[in-house]
């Protein structure tokens, strides 16, 4: 086991004109580690996620990623071709709205198989077998493989999106409110599934959520953001059980107890 981080983020800032998206965010992420980024809407957590996943270029700061060959690469200096290759092989991105991450007009099997075909798999039978395997891992019946995601429920779509992302064995997955917009019982199932996959596959993940319960269940570490700044960070249970920053205390005390 290597004792090097997977991702090093240093003083990352993104400004929209004079408005702050996120400012001087720094952290390291290790392999197999799940980092939750919490905060309310407009706190800059999604801006941060988009910068980290190179969907958005930051105004300043650096982020370096340790490639599969062990080489460190600066994300914002990579060519677009390299970044896009990274995004469909070693990374995953799970959108809050599955329609943003799926091809809604092609079958579930093709949705899962697309990344494989993109990296050069040319054996239909093998691609399909892999798709079947992944559908079962995300608890979608094999007989739905030729259905379009349009015919799926919200929870199923989200699970399909996860399978589509994980099929190439990425080492880092970005998730934007992965359980947002789902019923509570569907959420629980998805969370449990995600938790299992993350543990079994040793995935590193950065999960943006406003739901502290999601953060507690999925992550080991968390960062609390407000107005574009990280106001508190640390072990997830430490931050939630012994919140120190005024804003974190407000967040934690705002949770409805059931």
């Amino acid at each position: 086991m290597t004792d090097e981080p997977l991702l090093r983020v240093s003083a990352l800032s993104k400004f929209y004109g004079s408005r702050v998206g996120c400012e001087t965010v720094s952290f390291d992420l290790w392999p197999g580690e799940v980092l939750a980024v919490v905060g309310e809407s407009g706190s800059g957590k999604t801006t941060l996620l988009n910068c980290l996943s190179t969907r958005l270029l930051p105004s300043s700061g650096t982020a370096s990623y340790r490639m599969r060959d062990g080489q460190w690469r600066e994300l914002y200096r990579m060519s677009e071709a390299e970044r896009r290759f990274l995004m469909r092989t070693d990374w995953g991105f799970v959108h809050q709205n599955p329609a943003d991450g799926l091809r809604m007009t092609v079958s579930a099997g093709a949705n899962v198989g697309e990344r494989l075909m993109a990296v050069g798999d040319r054996h239909y039978g093998k691609i399909r077998a892999t798709a079947v395997d992944w559908l079962s891992r995300v608890e979608i019946d094999e007989d739905r493989i030729d259905d379009e995601p349009r015919a799926f429920s919200g929870g199923m779509r989200q699970r399909l999106q996860i399978a589509r992302n994980l099929v190439t064995g990425p080492r880092l997955v970005f998730m934007d409110e992965p359980t947002g917009g789902l019923d509570v019982s569907v959420q629980a199932r998805l969370l449990d599934l995600l938790r299992g996959l993350v543990t079994d596959l040793g995935l590193a993940a950065i999960v943006v959520t406003h739901d502290l319960a999601v953060a507690r269940l999925l992550s080991q570490r968390m960062m609390v953001m407000k107005d574009g700044h990280v106001v508190e960070s640390g072990l997830t249970d430490r931050v939630l059980d012994d919140p120190r920053a005024p804003y974190t205390q407000l967040l934690v005390s705002s949770i409805l107890q059931v």
């Binding site: 640390g234 072990l235 249970d237 430490r238 059980d241 012994d242 120190r244």
Partner: peptide, 9 residues
């Protein structure tokens, strides 16, 4: 006890 477990700072 919680400080010894890192749960409290």
């Amino acid at each position: 006890l919680k400080m010894l477990y890192g749960n409290y700072a």
